[in-house]
Design a protein around this nucleic acid. Sequence first.
RNA 1: GCGAGGGUGGCCGAGCUCGGACAAAGGCGGCGGACUUAAGAUCCGCUCCCUCAGGGGUUCGAGGGUUCAAAUCCCUUCCCUCGCACCA
Length: 903
Amino acid sequence: MSEEGYDHTAVERRWQEAWAEADAFRTPDDAEDPTYVLGMFPYPSGKLHMGHVRNYTITDAYARYRRMRGDDVLHPMGWDSFGLPAENAAKERDSDPRDWTMDCIDTMRGQMESMGFGYDWDREITTCEPEYYRWNQWLFRRFHEEGLVERRAADVNWCPSCETVLADEQVEGEEERCWRCDSLVEQRELDQWTLGITEYADELLSAIDDLEGWPDSVREMQRNWIGKQEGSVVEFEVGEAPTDSGSGDDGEPRTFGPVEAFTTRLDTVFGATFFALAPDHPISEELAAEDDAVHEFVHNEADPDGDEPNGVETGLTATNPATGEEVPVFVADFVLSDVGTGALMGVPGHDERDHAFARRMGVDVVPVVAPEPDVEGADPEVPDVSEGAYTEDGVLVNSGEYDGLTSAEAREALTGAIDSADFHTQYRLRDWLISRQRYWGTPIPVIHCDDCGPVLVPEEELPVELPEFVNTTGNPLDAAEEWKHTTCPDCGADAVRETDTMDTFVDSAWYFLRYVSPDLEEAPFDVERADDWMPVDQYVGGLEHAVMHLLYARFATKAVSDMGMLEHREPFTNLLGHGMVQLDGEKMSKSKGNTVSPQRIVGEYGADTARLFMMQAARPDTAFDWSEEGVRSTHRFLGRLAETVRSFVDRESEPAGDDDPTAAYVRSEVDAAVAVATENFDDLGFDLATREAQSLVATLRGYREYVDEVHAPTVERGLQVALRLLAPVAPHLTEELYAELNGEDAGLLVDAEWPTADVDTDEARRRRQLVENTRDDVRNIVDVAGIEDPDRVDVVVAPEWKHEALAVALDSDADNLVGELMGRPEIQRHGSDAADYAKDLQAEREALRPALSPEHEREALEAAAWLVEREFGAPVRVLAAEEADDDVASTAEPGRPAIEIVE
RNA sequence: GCGAGGGUGGCCGAGCUCGGACAAAGGCGGCGGACUUAAGAUCCGCUCCCUCAGGGGUUCGAGGGUUCAAAUCCCUUCCCUCGCACCA
């Protein structure tokens, strides 16, 4: 192992125990407003994977950083432990979902501990425990009281493989596949429980604007999902055509009454030349029962997923409420029953899809909106819509008294003028269907009574606990006869329990509130403390939950807030979606077989290496490739860090190095590192922060190698800083080295104070820039001039008056800068040099930037002189302008010293 | 199709919010040097082209424009990724 390694296993275990002993991550209940750092709690699938490691390293590093900054920190962990995999696993091995889940939790908790994640385990929550899920049931009751729970018969998404229904959010893609198992989702009609998320649609949408700490992508996805559309509803009278008694019987033509359609383009109603119904619209179904062609279409031809808009003529007509004309009615497969009202007015002139359909079915195409004329007052030119629709807004034509109005005006006017029309806002968002026909979830606390209907289980009888698991093909709750049969809470008659369980997203919709008071027995959470501690300051998780979990959590928070239980209306102030861990550009996944096991990495290199490698590899929100080479390199760095600290601690006698300019350079680099890394930690830029810390260690090592004797206080401070800057990311080794450096009595590094540095980061950057530029210039000269072996390098700082001139120039708004400068005696007295420099300044005027002060510039250069000496093996003199030859000094400018290299 | 985010030197990736220090941070890879018996590790440089003292030229998907000045602002266009999608 030698310098390369250290006994990470022993070191890591030692400090994990020490932290536990010291209760280092405990958040006391009386904490006032701790910084709440939270990673999305995992489903306990059995083993930690790299995605987990990345996620939880980010939260842990940030939590540790905030703690060192002096904050109280709340950093809890729990288990999203209900769900189908446990049930499937139990079926496979003929055991119990609970046992399997608890085993997984134990394993994963152990792995988290071995990663050194600092959680307040006293706040651990496990959603599959009655102590947790009773509050799902309790909240279900409260939601019910608020009128947010409904039971309705509905066509639902049914996953045949999972044997359960799915929420809309859980159906993915055009083909409609199950989010979990990828099976094709079917439709079934079932009585299901829903939560009234649509009541909050408007607020869920508008409040997105204020979620400034969230990624734009997530905000946009939520906006799209909610899908607010403002428009109008309007009715069309539908019936058999008056001139043709389609049934052949005598008597009046049948009417089907008014049928409502939703449109965002009521301005085009004069061009509505047909009307279309969804195949499963009640009228379609009625017609299908008596008309073979419609029946054939509805049951066999309709292809809602196809590209072509298909339809069948019904023989009915609808009355266009604007023109009074009778237009044909179709049953068409592009009309979807769950969009709008399941019926639409077709305007082929101004909608591409309607246009395609109309051409296919031979329906008239009438343009009623024209592009707004360029010239005010000119007559609009009616667009040619024979080949394609004109879909933009414009001004109305062929629309009777509405001609000339803009589209927006016409929508307003027509909605007012048409009796049956009204403004209407519709959403794509549906109520949240939470019924699942599965065992391993929260039982929905309802009892079905023949007389009373569905009755809520009274509060005092909660929780309704799951019965013993039975391995059966259907829903095990249905098979649990003894559990299922009970009596009605209202009338006492024989009754049966609801056998559906809740969607597991219910568990995660409010779990962040439970951490506040995980053991509370009277309520789901302590209201006062939640007011103090919420919202979560920094939430971190995968963006696969951009819509589902994050939307449900926002909904639950708002609903709970409206119940008077919380004063906050949003759960997560800042959201970070961490990027993927990839291998050769591909997502790691079990199915691809390209996973890297965190356990192996921890065993081989240690948790610190794994953590530091991941954090330095990329910004936390971007994907990055796992690289074994990178891991080794990180591991070597930690070895060097250890060696650097230990060789300092083990020094035989106090080094006699002076506090010379070189030491001053090191000190300024220490300060710069503190300033820069702190900034980076603040905005989760762990890659930049750790890089800064690593380069500080390199500086310290370079210093140690260059001088015979280091200035001990300077190196000591450098090491103290380096350990602290790395502590959040590589906590074990830094803790070990901290103890070695400071002795056993110094306390723990987790509790140590974050270092401060009294430097301005801009100033530090300017200083680094000056040094770097100067070194570059020296190299350039040596190279270009072909200097083999320099004897001496003189670096000459610009004279005071040039700095003054620059300052004046920066400040001046005079037209003639040269005049202004030369008007100043202290500048003017430098004669033609002054005039030349003034001209330079004038020429560069717009691009001038402030430089370091002459003293700072000189200090910085003197401090960095050793770098040049080391590189070129020649002594370096840093001179004031007055100390150098005039012809050399004259080329010096602020920020750009003159350089003279003597061979 | 709609929406969002991107396209930077061999690769990865900063910078682009507030145009000037940008030939453009950092890392990786490659090259040279120090150390070493050697390798490894470590350390110091180089890595668009030209250059006789710090200079010049051509670059930031493509094409225009604004400006004294653009990787950075505006317009057009191409390509990539991700969401949503026969949404009325």
